[in-house]
Design a protein around this nucleic acid. Structure first.
Lengths: 104, 104
DNA sequence: TGCATCCATGTCCGATTCGACATATACAGA
DNA sequence: TCTGTATATGTCGAATCGGACATGGATGCA
């Protein structure tokens, strides 16, 4: 039987599979990152819906423009805690958070 | 018309309303606490379902028994970040997290 | 081409959160 | 009652995360 693509690539020294496998993330780390990215996207959409700049949002939640930018980029230096606090400050409910985690 | 109960109590100097109002929490703070409590309960249930002690869970996630106890009590010194990491370490998916936030 | 606005990224250092430990409480079985 | 096991709580030094600031790039508009 003809060799599958993944096996052929691996024979050449390539890592195959999804982004997590490529980056060497555990399933847990991958799940964590996905949760963070979803909250980050949710924050950006919510801010856009309110037609706020990052600076305006920063003022509203007592933070800084640079940190808001990092939140929305799901930067590694931003905790889920801060992301969730920011979303709640924009009026998100726990149901909204649930929707962000479930959705797509 | 007969005075409503809330008004009567307030006339006597009592704060009325829900726990948040009583404790002087903003809507945002109240929402944050509720999210934390839900995740905390979810963690405890998941640990119980796996029949792990807090000590065993602590080892599994690289923490300590005392911190696990605080997580499950929704202690103020525990971040949502840590709670979510612990849940994911126990195999929860983002859908499970969504369910915890939505549920009841 | 200048100027303004918006967002991204790196760094600093003070604040918060972490794991660890000590210790306390609660409850079970011998 | 004594012993062991599970959980709760307070504290500490170390690690991580936070806001602030500086700066750079991108876009739009005069």
């Amino acid at each position: 039987m003809r060799e599958r693509r993944a096996e052929r690539l691996e024979a050449l020294g390539w890592r195959t599979g999804d982004a997590a496998a490529f980056l060497g993330l555990s399933a847990e780390e991958a799940a964590y990152v996905e949760v963070k990215v979803r909250l980050a996207e949710g924050l950006r959409r919510r801010r856009a819906a309110l037609e706020l700049t990052q600076t305006a949002l920063a003022e509203a939640v007592g933070s800084s423009q640079s940190r808001v930018a990092k939140m929305e980029r799901a930067d590694a230096t931003v905790s889920l805690d801060l992301l969730i606090r920011a979303l709640l400050a924009l009026g998100a409910t726990r149901h909204d958070l649930a929707r962000l985690l479930r959705g797509r």
